[in-house]
Design a protein around this nucleic acid. Structure first.
Lengths: 225, 225, 225, 225
DNA sequence: GATGAATGAGCCTTCATTCAT
DNA sequence: GATGAATGAAGGCTCATTCAT
């Protein structure tokens, strides 16, 4: 078997199974048997299951990180010191996110993986992602800060995560939702359709009026934590 | 030991551990040893791990479902045939969601669990929730439909899920995000604060302009799936 | 619930399940749930699973033992000191065996149980049967001895067990064999039919010529144990 | 540890324990601890306990099936079209049965296993044996049919099973019976002795006169099932 | 470089039994 | 007299990992 064929086969199979079932629910046996590879190969090539999980992410995030840096470079050149508008920043990020897995025909898988990275109990994974790719996100949020000077820093932080939740939740649960949509609305939705639908919602969310301080304590009597 | 003390102790411990680690990563031994209860007690009282998971959800969703029905009844009486405004509907839902676990001092846990219900590979759980509580959500979405007659049905479906993602993603990942926010913005955020912040964003998202058909194919060259 | 209703329900259910699956494969839960009786009732009324197994046998063997003694009494009166012919002894035993469970409509179950008593790893059961009912069988074999004076004692011992094997094996596996027979020979066989078929074979087996000493060592080179 | 040493040790230990206690009463832990082998080795090499049980049988039945086919081939050559006498067929089967485990010094174990295969609630095992080795037995019964043209087909079917019961019941319960015989008749019986004793009985049983139709209903009043 | 074999820890579940009520 | 609750032991099986070859 060719040298890195095994490695590739493992990664290809692992990302699909991880995306389908989650990390804990996917055993190395599941992966190696479906990939028709020796069970010990995972530990041989990657060292451990954790390292395999990280490698699966790295295969997406390395090119993403690189392309996103390049795209931001180009934007900074184009706007040469002027503030880059929020819509442009969001479009750029969306474009890069879509571009990377497009080459691997598996945007859906990538989105599922991103969702899992947030929701599953894999502390090592969040630490790994933060450490390896934190700088791109830091750079991006700084540009967003410049594009939304009217937003308090904390508000911007939360709204970015609100919108992150919107996107990841939707795209990572795409299959299930798509089935419902297809049944109820007789509509075959593609990722492209969804992104088109997401755009105005995300922009509106980011530009929503600030919460009025008046409402404070509205639920105070109902919420203890 | 008091009659149903064991049952309660198991449920209390299970919901915390499930919320912290997920279902697959939490063993019955983890639960029973922390709850200082015999391992076999889980199977005696619940029948299986799956049934325990469902029971954990039922303890939240049963009262939620009941209260939400009641709240919607009251709204329908109050508006006697008139359309109930979207903001009122959203407030009512938020109020009910907050009220239920408030009595148990564990809104955070409830939100984590809801997030897990969507993201983890527990098909039985989604089936169970859909089957047991589907009707409340159906009733709610029908009222939302009447409140947003200008939205195409499919668009409303997707936007509701966009907003669901916003809320669940944020609140279920609350701890991690709160830590970051505390460090970067020196801010101790409560769930109440977050709900206050979420409200204008959700309303703005639901009321965002419809996506223009002109944009179609915008990312066509970047997205293969 | 009436006093001994529970006991009867347990015994009725237990004998059926034991006959179907064997002793180890039938749990007290199987029995009590099918009998719609409390799990603890078995230990309450019988003391242990072993005791339940013995009770199931006692319900058949007590009347059998009593009737067989009576039948042999009558034979001894009738033949007043003369030797009772082998055929008569065999017929009498067969008649008694058939008569007992006939009242409970479950000869098949009784035979399965007898087969299990021999084949399953329930040492306590063999000891129990030997201790409780050994005397009837001793009395019977003594009469057989008188009826077959030409047979060496050891030969008679073995032939009785050969024939016991014939009967128990056939009748205890009745269902499976009946299915095959029904399929291959288009024949719906009853227990009565089988007993009719067994009679000449058993008699011929008992009366077979003695093995010639010449044959000794015929398989010596083929058999090491 | 040598390559298949583990497999052999597991099989050797398993067949002894199965024969002594039955399948359900023998745990994998019993087997692996006695065989001084890791518990997981059973699942690694065999896949499941069921598969182990089947493997234990296969180790006897594979060579038996092969040898018996060969022996029947030789008989057909020798008798070139003529009918092979019943005695010869029975001797041939007996010889093959004795020859196979002789090499493994465990005829007794083999016989116990055969008895268990019939009496224990292991449906999968009967299915497996029928499927894997059904053809040899079909071939054998066809030759018996030619050797006993005077017997009605159904009668021959039942008599073969009568005799099968005789043999399996006796040989599978050998140890217990041998103990009794040793005590009562001061006789140390070997398997060879028993086979010598079985032969005339089996032949006489097969050749017994047909049951007279006159006797029909003899026990009719005594047998309800 | 790659793999078949083996391992120890842990999984969920079921068992017969006991006990307080 | 009868039962719901609880228990310790044991069941078969799967896991990620290691190791000799």
């Amino acid at each position: 078997m060719a040298q890195s064929d095994t490695v590739t086969r493992i990664l290809d199979t692992a990302e699909v199974l991880f995306a389908e079932r989650g990390f804990a629910e996917t055993s190395l046996r599941n992966i190696t048997s479906k990939a028709r590879v020796n069970l010990a190969a995972v530990n041989y090539h990657f060292g451990s299951k954790k390292a395999l999980i990280q490698a699966v992410f790295a295969r997406y995030l390395d090119p993403f990180s690189q392309r996103f840096h390049t795209a931001l470079d180009e934007l900074e050149v184009k706007y040469k010191g002027d503030v880059i508008p929020l819509e442009v920043l969001l479009e750029t990020m969306a474009g890069t996110v879509l571009a990377v897995p497009a080459e691997r025909n598996s945007l859906k898988v990538f989105m599922r993986l991103l969702g899992l990275a947030y929701s599953q109990a894999q502390g090592h994974l969040r630490r790994y992602i933060q450490q390896q790719y934190g700088d791109v996100f830091t750079r991006f949020t700084e540009l967003v800060r410049q594009a939304t000077p009217e937003l308090p820093d904390a508000e911007r932080f939360w709204r970015l995560h609100f919108m992150l939740g919107t996107v990841i939740f939707t795209l990572s649960g795409l299959d299930a939702l798509r089935d419902i949509a297809a049944k109820d609305y007789n509509e075959q939705v593609t990722v492209r359709d969804l992104v088109k639908r997401l755009r105005p919602v995300v922009v509106a969310g980011m530009n929503a009026p600030l919460p009025s301080a008046v409402d404070e304590g509205h639920y105070a009597n109902a919420c203890a934590s």
